[in-house]
Amino acid sequence: MNRMEATVTEIRFGGFGGQGIIRSGIIIGRAASIYDNKSATMNQSFGPEARGGACSSQLVISEDRVLYPYVIRTDILVALSQEGYEKFVHELKDNGKLLYDEDLVKLKSTKRIDTYSIPATKFAEELGNRIIANVVMLGFLTSITQVVSKEAMNKALPESVPERYVELNIKAFDKGYKYGIEQKKAK
C-alpha cells in the first residue's frame, strides 16, 4: 500500500521505555498540529513491553487530514536503542532518514538511507540529566528534517514538560538543534 498524499511524513521513534519515546511523538505531534497547522496523528505501540523494555511510537504528519493512522513506509526513523534501530530500519523508505544516538546504536544495514548521528544521551548527561536525551534528539530532528518548524517546537515544548524542567528542556532542544545545523553543513 502506498500513501497517495505527497505531503505526508511518517516518523517512527524506537527506544526503551523511560527514554521519552512516546513523549517525543506527542511533542512533535502537538507542534505540527497546533502550531504548524498540519494534521498529526500519534500512535504508541502497546504490547507486552513494559518500562525498560522496547518501546516505540509513530507519528504521521500531513498537510491534509491523516486518514490511515499508522505508518506504512517511514520517512524518518529516530533510534535511541539498538533494538529500536534493528526492529524498524526495514520499514524506512529508500533515501529515508535515520537519526540515531551514536553511543547507543551500531549501524548494520547497507540500505540506501541517509544517516545522521548525535551523542544525544551524552549531551543530556552534560546538561545534567540523561532523561532529556529525547529532547536533544528532537532538536536534532527539527534542524535536520524540518518536519516541524522551530517556532512551533518552541511553543509546544514548554507545554509538554513539567514547569520546573522547562528551562532544561529548552537548553537540550537548542543543543540538539545547533548540532543538527553543524552536521548538515558538514554533509
Partner: peptide, 10 residues
C-alpha cells in the same frame, strides 16, 4: 475502539 482510543490528535 483501541485505535481511536490510543490515537493522539488535535
Amino acid at each position: 475502539d483501541e485505535c481511536v482510543g490510543h490515537m493522539t490528535e488535535k
